[in-house]
Amino acid sequence: MIRVFSSADVLFIVMAVRWTLILSAIAFAGGALGGMAIALARTSQRKALRQFAAGFIQVFQGTPLLMQLFLVYFGLAVVGLPINPLLAAAVALTLHASAYLGEIWRGSIEAVPSGQTEAATALSLGYADRMRHVILPQAMRVATAPTVGFLVQLIKGTSLASIIGFTELTRAGQIVNNATFKPFLVFGTVAILYFALCWPLSLLARRMETRMRRAITR
């Protein structure tokens, strides 16, 4: 039975946007925590920490996000947890975001001139105070634009969660298309919704970049 593509279908797709947003928010929040830990480990004095962080980044940047989703999804069953698409997608995307944000933030931390660390050290500030008050505030200015840029990637990346059966925006489109068989119309609608989410963020990232360039050349 093929039914027509109705306003109810459009509403169904639009409502699925919230799951895309929820998944993106969870992954971004988790990725921010994980990414900060990875970035600090990557720039640490301790070799073991640096190596662990480097390995973590290599693994998650060197494998497809889809494989990471599969491994976490089926891995949950292997360790005896019930299969839960939202949990699996959230965990996989968090790990993925941790690796990428960790690498972005490592670069930002290393972009702060070493004289800043030296001056803070000479003033007897310990590691935590140095990071919190001297290094990270400066690294943040470098990091904001690429971080927002990565957030756009992450939102688009959540579409892969459709493959493990999590009903976010893309999966909602597939469901509607299976019933209506209007792929161009359906996925066109889906694409426009992704664009509406991502475009403002891309603009914001570009604006931040320009502003930062101006701040540096001041």
Partner: peptide
């Protein structure tokens, strides 16, 4: 110099005495 560029002159001067 290695002053902290994101802090005012006064903040540069009070950070370490307050923290350490």
């Amino acid at each position: 110099f290695n002053l902290f560029p994101h802090m005012t002159v006064l903040e540069n001067c009070i950070l370490a005495p307050m923290k350490t």
